[in-house]
Nucleic acid binder design. Structure first.
Length: 499
RNA sequence: GGCGACGUGGCCGAGUGGCUAGGCACGGGUCUGCAAAACCCUCUACAGCGGUUCGAAUCCGCUCGUCGCCUCCA
């Protein structure tokens, strides 16, 4: 098995992963704040995490994968010490969609469910545990108590702060070490005159008006954002674990603060390797609501009837796979269409292979196995080289071509090898198959689907009677209704047209 | 002001000193009643300028351009 090499943000170089416990990867990846539907940028990051997991699995490692749900509202604008800032949950609650919810707890629950559903649609590996911040209050409070006791934190009338000067290695990850530079920053820093250093960050906010509040030794309030990840990661993975991931924006301040808290708490290294996913842009620009290029997964994947674009979620997965996680990626609708085409091609080829396997065709000879194994090894190798998905896909396409080109002369022995290849590649890259049915990938009602399928059968009937005019007329009709009609050995098939 | 990333053919994107990915689109072909799908072939690029080198997309310098973070956004 090849070494697994990743770019480590902490050391700024590619490194071979040396596991703390050989054969067992412990991995934490920062999850979303559930105040709305997740967008494709979020999922690019979660996809990177998924690839770390899948590659590790392919190497035969056991993986303990933890990714959290941030269901605590944290302050949005620069929260002033009086905590007048409004948090994301509260803001979402007041929005138009928020009217659907009785309170912030309901809102968080709803978007958590939606998030997990999209997670599954994109065929992302299920984590070992998906801890929620609100369910780990005791751990957070205990951590703060310890930090105060050891002189790493102090209480003011408004909050409990982590004392950055008490932790020497602060800035190691982001390079942001200078307190004065932070003060001069474009944005305001938390302005609490009781703060001892401008870099100090809140571990606990005192606020008895907050929509979500808990009782603590410092009165009613809520925990600082960074704390939940430290506490939950250590709870499920131990004081030191192997890899920690997240979006590039989280490197500072979030991850920097996580390191400071955790290592101040334990005196041990927190995570050995840090993996950060670059942001994606959409149509060459920063994704933003005002530019009209802001895509939630839901927007792309939901049926037309529900206001979505009706794309196969696996096409979105493949599209995101087509760029390297460590580089900015320019997501375009064209790219998504391209991906949809490729996903379908793989699915069709696999279907045909399975068809041969379950037919009464002769065994034939295995003329594929060796080449396909070599091909798979090349795909895996690309993935172990800092998750080089573009390279892995290029290799996979070559393998797919090998199979596609051999289909006509393929017996069961060769089909067995092809099927194995599809399974392995799908286990690693995950874009080839989920159960695929017309209803699932299409934006039609069941009735429409039934009609389309019936019409497709009529085409076959007409063609068998050489009534081509009639066959063409039916096909034209289906095309106009937004279906694509393809002739196969089993007869005409209708699928929703990609666009 | 501080920290960092990137500029590759019509588009998306790998590649970090020589052997010049891949996808999509375009064009040509095979197949097909005709299409679609599939398959085959085709398309030779590295922001600009200068330098190092036998040789640079790849190393160095400068210029231009784009982007991210800098207290709670993946």
């Amino acid at each position: 098995m090849p070494d697994f090499i990743l770019y480590n943000s902490l050391t700024r170089e590619e490194q071979t992963i040396q596991l703390i416990q050989p054969g067992h990867l412990r991995f934490y990846s920062c999850g979303p704040t559930v105040y709305s539907y997740a967008h494709i940028g979020n999922f690019r990051t979660f996809l990177t995490a998924d690839l770390v997991v899948r590659t590790a699995e392919a190497l035969g490692w056991q993986v303990t994968y933890v990714t959290n749900i941030t269901d605590v509202g944290h302050l949005t604008d620069d929260d002033h010490a009086d905590a007048l800032g409004e948090d994301k949950m509260a803001k979402a609650l007041r929005s138009k969609e928020g009217e659907l919810f009785a309170n912030v707890w309901d809102l968080a629950r709803f978007y958590t469910d939606a998030f997990v559903e999209e997670w599954e649609q994109l065929n992302l590996r299920k984590p070992f545990v998906r801890p929620r911040a609100t369910e780990h209050m005791r751990e957070q409070i205990e951590a703060i108590q310890t930090l105060i006791k050891t002189g790493h934190a102090y209480e003011t009338p408004d909050a409990v702060y982590f004392s950055v000067p008490s932790f020497k290695a602060y800035g190691q990850l982001s390079g942001n070490t200078r307190a004065d530079a932070l003060e001069e920053g474009v944005r305001d820093v938390v302005k609490d005159t009781n703060k001892q250093d401008p870099r100090d960050f809140a571990l606990w906010k005192k606020d008895d008006k907050h929509l979500m509040q808990w009782f603590s030794p410092w009165g009613w309030g809520f925990p600082g954002w960074h704390l939940e990840c430290s506490v939950m990661a250590m709870k499920y993975l131990g004081e030191t674990f192997d890899i920690h991931g997240g979006g590039e924006d989280l490197a500072f301040p979030h991850h920097e603060c996580e390191i400071a808290q955790s290592e101040a708490l334990t005196g041990k290294p927190f995570a050995n390797y840090w993996v950060h996913t670059r942001f994606l842009q959409v149509e060459g620009q920063k994704m933003s609501k005002s530019l009209g290029n802001f895509y939630r997964v839901k927007d792309l994947v939901a049926p037309n009837a529900e206001g979505g674009k009706g794309f196969d979620p696996l096409a979105l997965r493949l599209s995101l796979l087509s760029g390297h996680y460590g580089k900015p990626f320019n997501f375009t609708i064209q790219n998504l269409k391209d991906a949809a085409k490729i996903v379908r091609r793989y699915q069709d080829a696999w279907d045909l292979v399975e068809g041969i396997l379950h037919s009464d065709k002769p065994s034939g000879t295995d003329f594929l196995g060796k080449r396909l194994n070599e091909n798979y090894d090349a795909i895996l190798l690309a993935m172990t080289q800092n998750l080089n998905t573009p390279e892995a896909l290029a290799k996979a396409h070559a393998g797919q071509k090998m199979i596609q080109g051999a289909l006509s002369g393929m017996g069961k022995e060769a089909a067995k090898q092809a099927s194995k290849w599809f399974q392995k590649v799908n286990a690693l890259l995950g874009f080839i198959r989920r159960e695929r049915t017309l209803q699932e990938t299409n934006d039609t009602t069941d009735a429409e689907v039934e009609v389309a399928q019936a019409l497709a059968q009529l085409i076959d009937t007409a063609r068998s009677q050489k009534d081509f005019a009639r066959a063409d007329a039916i096909r034209t009709d289906l095309l106009q209704k937004g279906f694509e009609v393809r002739t196969t050995k089993e007869g005409s098939k209708v699928t929703k047209k990609i666009s």
